[in-house]
Design a protein around this nucleic acid. Structure first.
Lengths: 181, 181, 181, 181
DNA sequence: CATGAATGAGCATTCATTCAT
DNA sequence: AATGAATGAATGCTCATTCAT
């Protein structure tokens, strides 16, 4: 599965074949369907592994926040930190999200399954509103905007002169103003 | 090329084969490499076609703005409007961006080529700062955040209860506050 | 398709792969699914080709019979003659009949489709009964017995000291007695 | 081995893999080559098991016949009864007969090994001729016809309106006339 | 005895591309 | 300009078999 993540990140979804994964893992290609039954299942397990790790990390950081504002701040910081620390995992995540399809042809990232990341964010925002800390706004739409701003960083992070910390600081500034009363 | 866009949007990059495109276009599959020499070239032309149309539309809306604030507003509105009007084009764009690779294996969306959309946005922001209309911030990082918030909408727009206009209004609100002195 | 018949007869259903057929036909294996879409379709076409040829030959011989008795005689003779002349076709037929399965897993030879060979035989027998030429018996069961006795010859014909003509003569003798008043 | 028979009958020779058999037997697939060394050997043993059971049953019925005519009658009845009682065994038998091949590529049902069923039948017929009970005919060819008529029943027995007893009665009638002086 | 992990060979099929027409 | 035939490479997957445990 580690080899799968690497292959996804380095070669892209299309070239992530059993043969390529097996080459990296130094095993025979036919061993993969022996353990996973399906390529879809391999992908699903890989996705789950990545998502779980990420969600756990972010959540663990977030809960230490005393106020909704602090929790939002830590959500942004943790998300970007994770992206910066494990770019391979995030790249694999993107490859899967934009390529893996359910049997009926729908893209995974458009599926209706619970979207842990967004749910957590929405709950932070709602809490802030209930506490009177944040102004009135639609929490779901705000969450989408925040997550978009976070994720976009991944495409830019490889370019020269772009670093995690300043971007995190800027995002915190932007969304502090956005939610402030 | 219209068939290529449709196929990309409906079937995804992987399944966008000459055979599939040809079936939609009601032509023979061997006609495509006759006109385009390469699959890469077909993709490149398709991408260019989409990008040009989008950039032109957004730019045309932006230039009518009297102030940097208005131009930013129109940039956001036009981008989201285009996405809502031509979801097929945007879906194809995403498929290409996250799948097409240069011969050396790099993803296109990470390439160093001029990124018209972002350049325009950066110039709006810089102008606003020079005019004293916007506060001090890093224009590039702000542009990344804005574009991320815009693009994220595409993944969410197919879910129930999500519409273009309210999201555009919210984004405008968010980034007005973000750039305000 | 000729290569398919030969491969079926010589190698058996299991080993009748695109690769094997292609080797005999001196073409590339990938050309077969280009023309036939499916392996099932290739098999179906092959089966149809064989069955049509056989049915046509037998029927053509049968119609020249003046009486039901003569027609029965010619049915037996023609069936066995075809088997002796085109053992390859018959071997392929058997391979398909006992191996090809419909998508739901049922064997083809147990399917309910019209069984031209048997239908013709039944009609001969019924006519003989109506004409008062044959005694009373169940035509369907008699037809099954006749066909079984004919088909069994295929398994035995390759053994030394077994020839078509004497077997045909014996079968005619057997079933003349069986249907005689 | 019981699982092998079931798998052969239900899934067909092609799909009768160690994996499938093991699934039915609720054992590990690698246990089979541990006990049988070869797939061929497993098949051979299975075939032997089926054939022995069948032959024994038929022979046991046959020996009780007082005359050749009675023994022929019981041969037909017992064969068909066995087929009707153990259709699974017979189906497996057919799968093996028409698919298993000796290392040199020859089908088993065409091999020269002693064919117990046919040998018994031939001996009955010869005895009848020696006793002056049956007319003159080639016993081997007559035996082939009888066995063909019996075996053909298997393909037809699953269709509606086809039962063992009437078919057995008809066959007895047919071949009584065929051998009668 | 029995198992799970592992492998190389083979299979049906898709694909980008070439080529004669 | 356009097509159908053809191909080699690659893909997901199954299979019989081996082996360490």
């Amino acid at each position: 599965m580690a080899a799968t993540i690497e292959t996804l990140a380095d070669e892209g979804y299309r070239r992530t074949s059993f043969a390529q994964i097996a080459k990296r893992a130094q095993i025979s290609a036919s061993l993969i369907p022996y353990h996973f039954a399906n390529k879809d299942e391999l992908i699903a397990h890989t996705l789950e592994g990545i998502a779980t790790g990420w969600d756990a990390y972010v959540e663990q950081q977030v809960v230490t926040g005393a106020s909704a504002g602090q929790r939002l701040e830590r959500y942004i910081q943790a998300s970007l930190a994770y992206m910066g620390t494990r770019p391979t995992h995030f790249a694999a995540l993107i490859e899967i999200a934009f390529n893996a399809r359910t049997p009926d042809g729908k893209l995974m990232y458009r599926s209706d399954e619970d979207d842990t990341g967004l749910t957590l964010l929405v709950s932070i925002l709602e809490q802030g509103q209930q506490d009177g800390e944040f102004r009135a706004f639609d929490p779901r739409r705000m969450a989408i905007a925040i997550r978009g701003a976070i994720n976009e960083f991944f495409g830019a992070m490889h370019k020269p002169g772009v670093a995690v910390e300043p971007y995190a600081d800027d995002l915190i500034g932007i969304f502090r103003r956005a939610v402030a009363r």
